[in-house]
Amino acid sequence: MRFMIIIKASQESEAGAMPSQELLTAMGNYNEELVKAGILLGGDGLHPSSKGARVRFSGDQRTVIDGPFIETKELIAGFWLWQVKSREEAIEWVKRCPNPMPGTEAEIEIRQVFEVEDFGAEFTPELREQEERVFGQIKKR
Rank of each mutant, 00 (worst) to 15 (best):
T124V: 03
P19D: 00
G42Q: 01
P48G: 01
E115W: 02
R56N: 11
A9G: 11
N31E: 11
R87K: 14
I108Y: 01
L24Q: 13
P19V: 00
Y30S: 04
Q112C: 08
S50N: 06
I108K: 06
T63G: 08
S86W: 10
M18A: 07
V64K: 09
R2T: 09
M27C: 05
G120D: 06
N31I: 00
T25R: 15
Q112M: 15
T104L: 14
A121H: 08
G38A: 09
A106W: 05
E132F: 12
V116W: 11
N31L: 05
E132W: 13
R133A: 14
P98G: 00
L41K: 12
D44C: 06
E115M: 04
P48N: 02
D66M: 05
I6G: 02
S58E: 15
T124S: 15
N99E: 06
F79I: 05
F57C: 14
I91G: 02
G43M: 07
L24M: 15
E74L: 10
G38S: 07
T124A: 08
Q83K: 13
A53E: 13
A17Y: 08
P100N: 02
L81G: 00
G52P: 03
F57G: 09
F3I: 05
E115N: 09
I70P: 08
G43F: 01
A53R: 13
T25P: 09
A106H: 11
G103P: 05
G43K: 00
D60Q: 14
A53K: 13
F3S: 07
Q137N: 12
E12P: 02
E105H: 08
Y30N: 01
I65C: 06
E14V: 04
F123A: 07
M1Y: 12
M101I: 15
E89G: 02
I110N: 02
E131T: 12
T104P: 03
I70N: 15
T104S: 13
Q112V: 10
E131A: 12
A106P: 01
W93G: 04
A9M: 04
A53I: 13
E92M: 11
F119R: 03
G120N: 06
I65M: 14
G42T: 00
L81K: 07
S10H: 00
E92S: 13
I5M: 10
A26P: 08
N31Y: 03
T124D: 11
